[in-house]
């Protein structure tokens, strides 16, 4: 599959704060790409950089194989987005809002298509009502209809289930799956809820404090056979051993005297044996059972 988005060494600094720090990732065509992190992790900043709302301090973004800075208009014509909450004009009706979105997309869209689109999201009978009279769920559906009105190849949804009731969340989830599986659209969906990502995403990127923690296929990341192993030991000696052995290829990170590796759980006894054989006193070896645990351990302060 082709890469739709390629981000290299993306950095954004706000005065003294690094909101995004040297982030690289790629999104392939047709997949739902989950973007996971706690509030303030840098998800929204990254997404805004993808939409040219924020200028990166450093790094490059390529979308549809083109540099975003140089081909901004061309790229944005093929992107639909909802950022945090649907951006709608409350004093306009649903039909007026979708008309406005259609015109701004730079593509000529027949008027009948606008009505059809509203009907698709169940707003046919309320299209002439002002948006300020809508419930949050209706706004979200209208926002999605507006974001899709110009049939974009790439859809970017930032926290799309925020503020929705359980039924709204389920509707949104189904919509995302349908857009991907039935219409072949590529979606970048950010959330701070791993459970949502587990259901809808094909690939996932977890970030914390602006840095990439892990990126990969969700199934692989969630595979219980494929575990994150946390080793607590004499850090210096243990690292020295790992880096000079075949275990080096599994090394993921070192933080707070904890060394993290990623390999099949069956290899844990062999790993333990080798550590002992090399006179490394092990305090503990712990397997993290699910991505949720991993996510929490990685992202807690």
């Amino acid at each position: 599959m082709n890469e739709i988005i390629r981000v290299n060494n993306l950095t954004k600094e706000f005065k003294e704060v690094k909101a995004v720090d040297n982030l690289s990732f790629s999104v392939r065509e047709g997949e739902v790409y989950g973007f996971l992190g706690q509030n303030g992790a840098g998800k929204s900043t990254t997404i805004r950089m993808l939409l040219t709302l924020i200028k990166p301090t450093d790094g490059t973004i390529e979308i549809f194989g083109m540099n975003l800075q140089q081909h901004r208009k061309e790229i944005l014509k093929q992107i639909g987005a909802i950022i945090e909450r649907p951006d709608l004009y409350n004093y306009l009706t649903a039909l007026e809002n979708i008309q406005l979105f259609a015109k701004l997309s730079g593509i000529k869209i027949p008027f009948t298509h606008l009505k059809e689109q509203l009907a698709k999201v169940g707003l046919a009978d309320r299209m002439h009502s002002k948006v300020k009279t809508y419930s949050q769920g209706m706004k979200q559906r209208l926002g999605l209809a507006c974001a899709l009105i110009h049939d974009p190849k790439l859809l970017i949804l930032d926290e799309p289930t925020n503020g929705l009731d359980p039924q709204g969340i389920a509707e949104m989830r189904n919509m995302i799956i349908r857009l991907s599986k039935e219409q072949g659209k590529t979606l970048v969906v950010s959330s701070h809820l791993l459970s949502e990502m587990e259901i809808v995403a094909d690939s996932m990127l977890i970030i914390n404090k602006g840095k990439k923690v892990v990126e990969g296929n969700v199934k692989e990341l969630l595979n219980p056979e494929y575990s994150i192993v946390e080793l607590e030991a004499d850090t210096e000696t243990a690292l020295n051993f790992i880096r000079n052995s075949e275990w080096n290829k599994y090394l993921k990170s070192v933080a707070n005297h904890i060394i993290r590796l990623e390999f099949n759980k069956d290899k844990i006894p062999d790993f333990n044996k080798e550590l002992v054989a090399h006179d490394i006193s092990v305090e503990s070896i712990r397997r993290i059972h699910s991505l949720e645990d991993y996510f929490l351990t990685q992202t807690k302060d």
């Binding site: 944005l76 951006d87 709608l88 979105f101 701004l104 730079g106």
Partner: peptide
């Protein structure tokens, strides 16, 4: 919030 909408359009 609609400035985001305008800013992300072509």
């Amino acid at each position: 919030g609609t400035l985001r909408l305008l800013g992300s359009k072509p």
